[in-house]
């Protein structure tokens, strides 16, 4: 049973484009299940989502998305090794305490990790810092004192974390305002998208 699903947010559409039809998908921090509902309707994936917030789980249930309430910081014990083709962590890694652990857990339970995060190196962020303030933008809508985002990074930082753990970056896309950025991405790109596998 599939219900009509409205158009995806551009960043989620970018992720959806990477997901192969009929594959097994795990979405960590799945929110209200928008991405998975779309993938179920358009790519016939079999999918689970994980979210910390019971209200999001309820919305996922309403959207016919398999949501498991859980805390990503505690790892992914519910999921067996190599159970998924794609494991998605969308704009969440910067808010996690156990950043490195979740990345490794993603590649334990899945073949490929899709990680997206706001690029701290984006020129508008740098400009705000030059003006003497912490960056606040559409992609980073919090003040320094109430932000859940505790682990900011730029493209090079994430590359280095992957390299340190022997992980291979299969593909990287950088976007600003829903459009791809290829020239000077670490300066001109506000959102980073990575496909990562074991080395």
């Amino acid at each position: 049973m599939s219900q009509p699903v409205s158009a995806l947010r551009p960043d989620l559409q970018m992720i959806a484009d990477w997901v192969s039809p009929g594959s097994r998908v795990l979405d960590l921090g799945c929110g209200e299940g928008d991405l998975l509902a779309w993938l179920q309707a358009h790519k016939q994936v079999s999918a689970y989502g994980v979210d910390f917030d019971v209200n999001n789980v309820v919305r996922c249930v309403a959207a016919n998305v398999n949501a498991i309430q859980g805390d990503l910081e505690a790892g992914l014990a519910e999921f067996a090794d190599q159970r998924f083709d794609h494991v998605v962590l969308s704009q969440t890694i910067q808010a996690m305490h156990n950043t490195e652990q979740i990345l490794l857990e993603m590649l334990r339970v899945g073949r490929e990790a899709i990680v997206t995060f706001p690029n701290f190196g984006y020129w508008e962020n740098r400009w705000q810092i030059l003006k003497g303030r912490m960056p606040v933008s559409d992609d980073m809508p919090y003040q320094w004192y109430n932000t859940p985002n505790i682990h900011w990074c730029m493209l090079g930082d994430f590359d280095e974390l992957c390299a340190k753990n022997g992980l291979r970056v299969v593909e990287r896309v950088v976007m600003t305002g829903g459009r791809r950025v290829t020239f000077l991405p670490n300066l001109r790109g506000s959102l980073a998208f990575y496909r990562v596998t074991r080395g």
Binding site: V57, V61, N66, A67, I68, G70, A77, F79
Partner: peptide, 15 residues
């Protein structure tokens, strides 16, 4: 829940 996921069943879980 863990067993249901391992068996590939459709499951939602709320705490």
């Amino acid at each position: 829940v863990k067993a249901l996921i391992a068996a590939g069943k459709r499951v939602a879980y709320a705490e």
